[in-house]
């Protein structure tokens, strides 16, 4: 999911509203989770990238750092954080078992859902995509985002037991 994360210099893991995490955030070290991601993403995209693969990556990084507005970067940071949390929960589920399956599911889907919603918000507020969303202004997008997040967390809290 969070392919941007190997790009983001992970600035100041925001201590923003993180109600979505549940119990599983205990022992497993993030060190194991973090490397697993980039390898996966490079495996996904690196299939045919023999010619100047490093250059491509560099290009992307440059493009990202130059062209992305500060607000969007903030969103990206949040998404990266969510991806890490989600990966942690998944790892916990694999290592320690999924016993309160309700809790795992709602915690995990809270991160996934929030990630997806944030990605949607990011897409909708990007200047380049303006033509795709004639009826969605940035303010409207944010309002939608808040409403959908509320719905999401209502369901999560209801499901968590």
């Amino acid at each position: 999911m969070a392919k941007q994360r190997n790009v983001t210099p992970s600035p100041a893991m925001p201590a923003t509203s993180q109600q979505s995490t549940t119990a599983p955030a205990t022992a497993p070290a993030p060190a194991t989770a973090t490397p697993s991601k980039p390898t996966k993403s490079s495996a996904a995209t690196g299939g045919g990238g023999k010619p100047s693969w490093d250059k491509v990556v560099l290009n992307i990084v440059d493009y990202y750092q130059d062209k992305t507005p500060q607000r969007t970067k903030l969103l990206d940071a949040f998404m990266a954080f969510l991806a890490v949390v989600g990966a942690l929960q998944f790892l916990y589920c694999i290592l320690a078992g999924n016993y309160p399956f309700n809790a795992f599911l709602s915690g995990f889907s809270a991160t996934v859902g929030q990630f997806v919603l944030t990605a949607s918000l990011r897409i909708q507020t990007t200047e380049a995509n303006k033509s795709d969303f004639p009826s969605v202004s940035p303010e409207r997008a944010f309002a939608d985002y808040v409403v959908c997040s509320l719905i999401l967390h209502f369901f999560c809290v209801n499901f968590i037991n």
Binding site: S109, G113, A119, I123, Q124, L152, N158, F159
Partner: peptide, 22 residues
């Protein structure tokens, strides 16, 4: 594929699946 499809589908799936699990 369009960004609209992404927004519509992922929103529906993320929320709808949780809703159905209730």
């Amino acid at each position: 594929y369009s960004t609209r499809l992404y927004v519509a589908y992922t929103t529906w799936y993320a929320l709808g699946t949780l809703a159905s699990m209730q």
